[in-house]
Amino acid sequence: MEDKNKSSRRKFLDNGLKLGIVSAIGGLGLSKITSKLNASNVDSSGEKMELMTTDGTLIQVDSSEVMEVTHAKEHDKKYNVREGNPNRKFVMVVDLAKCKNALKCQNACNKHHYITGENAWLKVYKMQEEKDTAPYWMPMMCMHCDQPACVTVCPVDATFKRKDGLVLIDNERCIGCRFCMAACPYSTRVFNWGEPGQEVTLNMDMTHHTPSPEHAGMPSIKGTVDKCDFCPHAIDNNELPHCVTSCPNGVFYFGDKYEDTVTNGDETVRLSQLLEDKSGYRLMEGLGTSPSVYYLPPVDRLVDFEDGLKDFKEFESVEPVSPAEKPE
């Protein structure tokens, strides 16, 4: 009895399904036909227009059938902060042979990002691999890794990787767990342990009222992480990041990997050529983070190193920019 019930029910379902499909197809066909009928119902005005199709052949259409199509205005402009600029991949090259610890990069970065206190995003390290090798200066900023450890561990997607290579932080979302800092092998992230003393609200770039991970000029937020952001606000204006433009020694090159060009403002070079000629490398390649920052080895390092020592301070806190002084 039960079996019969089941099978009859299955039959019913089966039939129902078939009916559904048939009616769907039928409906589709019907609507096609009616639309054709409708089209031929329109009174032709008799005037013909010549148009070119996308593949280049000329055709004639009745002018009554020609309608203006509204362009999808959003189409090109729609820009997703989390996706970034399409078809680009930003990279940086740091030529260690040229670095003299002038620290102009750090000053510029601090100034444009309103960095105060101990939170400098860019640090110049005094490096020495072995006792008997010469020391050299090494600017360090976020490597914008292609396999970013920080992004993997963030529980809320506050730090994210964009298609154009940038790793950014949404300070409106970050919960301050500092897991990303623990995960980053380059120790490049800084945390706003207290109220960031950025008393420069007057100067802040108020054209971007809504806080966005992209725009420098928004104050840092207490209890969230910060780090070098590759200056997307500068990229947007077709400018180079501040550290690149401010370096008197042309240490930093910035550019697009897909275009295979990088520039330090003075000279523009082929990225692949540069890396090959000067045997560029990336920091801790073995970890598999694939950084977007390349280094050129510090050749002839001793002379330049001595130069830099006069600028060297174990540590210096950044004073807030005075409200009167607007960053250029």
Partner: peptide, 25 residues
């Protein structure tokens, strides 16, 4: 330990499965 406990709900709203913190949650 969270510096922004006021954003606790983000752990649910924006939860990402690959983070060990989400596993803890």
């Amino acid at each position: 330990d969270m510096a922004r406990p006021d954003r606790l709900l983000n752990l649910f709203i924006h939860a990402r499965l690959q983070s060990p913190i989400t596993w803890d949650v």
